[in-house]
C-alpha cells in the first residue's frame, strides 16, 4: 500500500548518492529488503518501475536482495557507468 512512497524515497536516496559523483550515471541499484520490513517486494518492484521512467534516471535497473527475518530497507550499492 505504501510502496509508491517507498519507491520515491529509494529514488531520492539514489539521487543523493549520485550527487557525490558529478557527471556519473547509475545503471543499476541494489536494495536489501528485509522480510519484516513491512514492504512487499513485488509491489515495490512495480512502483519503482513506474517512477523510475519519469525520474530522469532511467534506465536504472533495481536488484532486490531479500533478507529472511530481516528488517532492513537499505540501498546497498550503485553501479556507475564510467564511460
Amino acid at each position: 500500500m505504501h510502496e509508491m512512497g517507498i519507491a520515491a524515497s529509494l529514488l531520492d536516496a539514489i539521487r543523493a548518492e549520485l550527487a557525490r559523483y558529478p557527471g556519473a550515471r547509475a545503471t543499476r541499484a541494489g536494495l536489501r529488503l528485509g522480510e519484516y520490513s513491512g514492504v512487499d517486494r513485488e509491489s515495490l518492484s512495480f512502483c519503482y518501475g513506474v517512477l523510475v521512467e519519469d525520474s530522469g534516471l532511467a534506465p536504472l535497473a533495481l536488484d532486490i536482495e531479500f533478507e529472511p527475518r530481516g528488517r532492513d530497507l537499505d540501498l546497498i550499492y550503485l553501479e556507475l557507468d564510467d564511460e
Partner: peptide
C-alpha cells in the same frame, strides 16, 4: 562499470 558499496537507509529522512 564500477560498483559502489553503500549502506544507506531508504527511509533515512524519516529516520
Amino acid at each position: 562499470m564500477s560498483r559502489i558499496p553503500l549502506e544507506r537507509k531508504v527511509l533515512g529522512e524519516n529516520d
